[in-house]
Design a protein around this nucleic acid. Sequence first.
DNA 1: CTGAAAGCGCTTACAG
DNA 2: CTGAAAGCGCTTACAG
Lengths: 345, 345
Amino acid sequence: MEGESPQRATIRDIARAAGVSKSTVSLVLNGSDLVKPQTRARVTEAMQALGYVYNRSAARLRGAGNPVIGMVINDLANPFYTELAIGIERGCQTAAVVPFLANTAESPVRQAQVIRSMREHGASGLILAPALDTDAAQLDALTGALPVVFAMRHPRGARGSAVMPDNRGGARTATAHLIALGHRRIAFLGGMPGMAVRGERQAGYRDALRAAGIAFDPALVADARPTREGGRTALAQVLALADPPTACLAYNDVVAIGTLHALADRGRVAGRDFAVVGFDDIAEARQMSPPLTTIAVNGEGLGERAARLLLRLIEQPGAKDEIVIGATQLVVRQSCGARLTAGAA
Amino acid sequence: MEGESPQRATIRDIARAAGVSKSTVSLVLNGSDLVKPQTRARVTEAMQALGYVYNRSAARLRGAGNPVIGMVINDLANPFYTELAIGIERGCQTAAVVPFLANTAESPVRQAQVIRSMREHGASGLILAPALDTDAAQLDALTGALPVVFAMRHPRGARGSAVMPDNRGGARTATAHLIALGHRRIAFLGGMPGMAVRGERQAGYRDALRAAGIAFDPALVADARPTREGGRTALAQVLALADPPTACLAYNDVVAIGTLHALADRGRVAGRDFAVVGFDDIAEARQMSPPLTTIAVNGEGLGERAARLLLRLIEQPGAKDEIVIGATQLVVRQSCGARLTAGAA
DNA sequence: CTGAAAGCGCTTACAG
DNA sequence: CTGAAAGCGCTTACAG
């Protein structure tokens, strides 16, 4: 039954065993209907008996078979990017392609290495959540003629498609929500200058302020690394102000969660003593105490769309690059104090 | 400069351009010192000019070059497994190998598919954090003669190496810590019956109870999915007891974090009103409010060791399988109330 | 429906 | 030090 051969069985081994030619075996492998059912059965049996496993690399060398793609993620330790990666992987499943994974940890140097490596390993396309400070020109040189779709960030000037959420619109909605709740001094917390995504979210924040006739106060934006720790320090910074804010929009959920913890440390409760709204809606957001109000971006969905887009680009070499902007949605939970304030209003 | 050719340049293109033979190009590619420096320079220039990228698949077909490996993860959405994956990926970097990634989401069916797929794509070995209810015999058939190293769970009877933490010892230490703090009624929260890792951790918990002469009370163990949500429900279950516990050991950190949130919801503060200890020490644990006392397992380190072990197994086909058990360490923070109780004692 | 032949991009002896 | 030749496991026309 098992008959595990020492060497991996090849197409010619099974041809010999089934008493047919290599071509015939290849035909059944590819599901051709040129093969007589009886022959096909003999071949299939032989494959079972010899424990045959198809060699896709050999097929690909000859120019056939499913592609392999590379996913290059800037920060897998951030739950949002994990969700993105899960979505990409799922998008690949349906097409029976298997993705390479690399985590660059925001290092452009590492990023260059892995892109090179993935190309050498035969990746037919790349999904790239680019590292901070990625140089567009260098990237173009690296990716060559390969289809690439950027996720979340699109390095200015780089060639390629992209899928990202409506950062500006989402931030505008979130801020408007806070304003509707009666807040006038609203901080923008976390993220570092130069982060493109943060720039967009901050623009949405200012849009909403302007629409409500609230002057933008630079003292209310606190830079910090986009981590839980960053959220803590950013909150501390604005709370120390002479005229502190009563609410904040966080750069992302991880930062927002940091602020929630920092609030708890001070014995203040989010949603009652201070309003916080996040961005991303990672799985964790719903689980917090109090549950985090946030802008849902659907990271898995974005990942899946990126995968599908890339697969299409690979299939149709002439296809033009595309930018897809995913819709966002305000998810009201408790950290913004909506119910309380709404009830009081 | 750029000269991106329509077709990918091959070794013979660059041979022609440099005025040498294919063999010579191959030699410089592999860093042989049989090539005159001047010749090497000419070849290297030609590679630059033609934008040559090495085709590792072709090399591997011929039996050379670095391997590619597959990492198959049961639950990438759990931060612990993300850390494991990051470690694996890092372990691969040093050896210049690139890993395939698949997330099985605990589905043995999906797991079988991806293993097959990765073999077809030429993976020379597998790191497997197996899905629940993985059938050892079926798995053995799937992995064939391939080196495999299991991470975290080793399906009973399956062939392969493994790297996992000292679950029993860690749980024993954690429980003993709680006992030393004065607790007598200590719950074991989360995880489902049949999970191997949970069995080990629970055994350690009972070891410590026995050593302290505390009778094991089955009412104090609450099954629940190993998620934040599971942690909430498990805590609710034991708190509803007539004679509720004053402390708990959670199956893992994610569960522990769920209990922390559930406590906060009830206006109780962990470490003062109730002691909680987790298991894994994911990055998040330190960030909680209050910070989570837990058993550090070093997920990234485990992943890195798994990668190294696999690489060694691939390199030395004769090598025997190995089981490596990683040491664990109690990290005392605040959720166990150590300082308070210790001060009071 | 099936077989013989060429070739994908490399590496590896084997000669020179 | 460098070149000609065979072969890794497949697929693809091309004949029969």
